[in-house]
């Protein structure tokens, strides 16, 4: 008798966060939502503007979710994350414009280059015990260096003038006559990112990141390589950001440093993650759903007063940090059931 009890209890004790604890209503809900998202551009007679907003939401949801891996799970606040968006965008674009290499290959190349740069920068930053704040500083510097370099080498990058991408309708060139296709491409990138984040949260590697975030010293005592956990998170986030960057350049067919890698983009990424709740795999998505339409509205309202929207972001960030540092999904952390579902 006792044995049986212990076994059933055992499975309940060591369950890790996941949707199965919510049962079939959750799966039904997810199915409905996903079908809704997929049907949105075609089933309804929507203006392309709204499809475009949908694309932006998924773009930032992807970046926010990726940031959640390094900033939320591993607790390493990368403040120059847009640098990786830029690396992805510029790698594929320059390969395409200068060497006529398909942006699909450029996408992979950008991801690889991002991984490399994240590793080269991240390794010494983490290796020499640069915790939390110092890492944040290092990423600010990284973001600014890459921004400055891209702007300075204008013969190759087009500098602050930017480069328009040549347009040749060809799926092999990541260019489609029907612009709705971009909606589905970013959908795939987004859903994959959320899936990776979800799986990671349930995996050994994810646990190690959370442990490192909470207490590096105790994590090491548990046999966890602090360096490996942080570096994995940083590289993973960089790679995903680069993929999103390539997508974005192909979507808007124009590239300049301030569109893809300004501090403003980094801020937007952080804000999306923080608002939704950066510890959850759904945080970036929720944050983007709320923030992106608002930011569109703000930007179009205050066209005469540029800066107003970002100043308001500053206020939102301060208020969030003062009163709701764990974001919206963080409010669920005290309910054991919901905690598992949102993967806190």
């Amino acid at each position: 008798m006792r044995n049986k009890k212990a076994t059933s209890e055992a499975s309940s004790i060591l369950t890790i966060p996941g949707l199965q604890s919510a049962g079939w209503p959750a799966f039904l809900g997810i199915a409905v939502i996903l079908i809704g998202i997929l049907a949105f551009p075609v089933a309804f007679d929507v203006r392309f503007y709204f499809v475009q907003v949908g694309i932006l939401i998924m773009f930032y949801a992807t970046l926010g979710t990726a940031w959640g891996i390094v900033g939320g799970y591993a607790g390493q606040h990368s403040i120059g994350q847009a640098a990786f968006v830029g690396i992805g965008a510029y790698t594929s674009t320059l390969l395409y414009m200068k060497l006529d290499i398909s942006p699909w290959i450029g996408l992979i190349a950008g991801m690889l280059l991002s991984a490399l740069i994240a590793a080269v920068i991240g390794y010494p930053l983490f290796r020499y015990g640069l915790k939390g704040d110092y890492f944040a500083l290092g990423t600010v510097a990284l973001g600014l260096i890459i921004f400055e370099i891209t702007t300075s080498f204008s013969t190759i990058t087009g500098g602050s003038q930017g480069i328009p991408l040549k347009y040749e309708e060809n799926p092999l060139n990541f260019q489609f006559p029907n612009r709705t296709v971009y909606y589905y491409i970013i959908f795939i990138i987004w859903i994959l990112t959320v899936f990776i984040s979800y799986k990671l949260r349930r995996s050994r590697a994810g646990f190690e990141m959370l442990a490192v975030r909470d207490d590096e010293i105790a994590a090491a005592r548990g046999g966890i390589s602090v360096l490996k956990a942080k570096l994995t998170a940083f590289i993973l986030a960089a790679v995903i950001s680069a993929a999103a960057g390539t997508f974005f350049a192909q979507f808007i067919l124009f590239l300049d440093p301030s569109t893809v890698m300004s501090l403003g983009i980094s801020v937007q990424i952080i804000l999306v993650a923080v608002l939704g709740g950066m510890n959850s795999y759904l945080g970036g998505t929720l944050g983007a759903i709320i923030l992106i339409p608002v930011s569109q509205l703000l930007a179009s309202t205050f066209t005469e007063r540029p800066g107003t929207d970002i100043a308001l972001y500053g206020v939102i960030l301060i208020v969030l940090m003062l009163f709701m540092p764990n974001g919206i999904l963080g409010l669920f952390r005290n309910s054991p059931k919901w905690r598992k579902i949102v993967g806190w």
């Binding site: 060591l14 959370l210 909470d214 207490d215 548990g222 966890i224």
Partner: peptide
């Protein structure tokens, strides 16, 4: 394996997860 004079646990993880982290390393 050691403990610390000032206890070190993973404050933002659940009690179960705190053990899980140590389970397989």
């Amino acid at each position: 394996i050691r403990t610390f004079q000032l206890t070190r646990i993973f404050r933002n993880l659940t009690v179960a997860e705190n053990l899980l982290v140590f389970a397989s390393n």
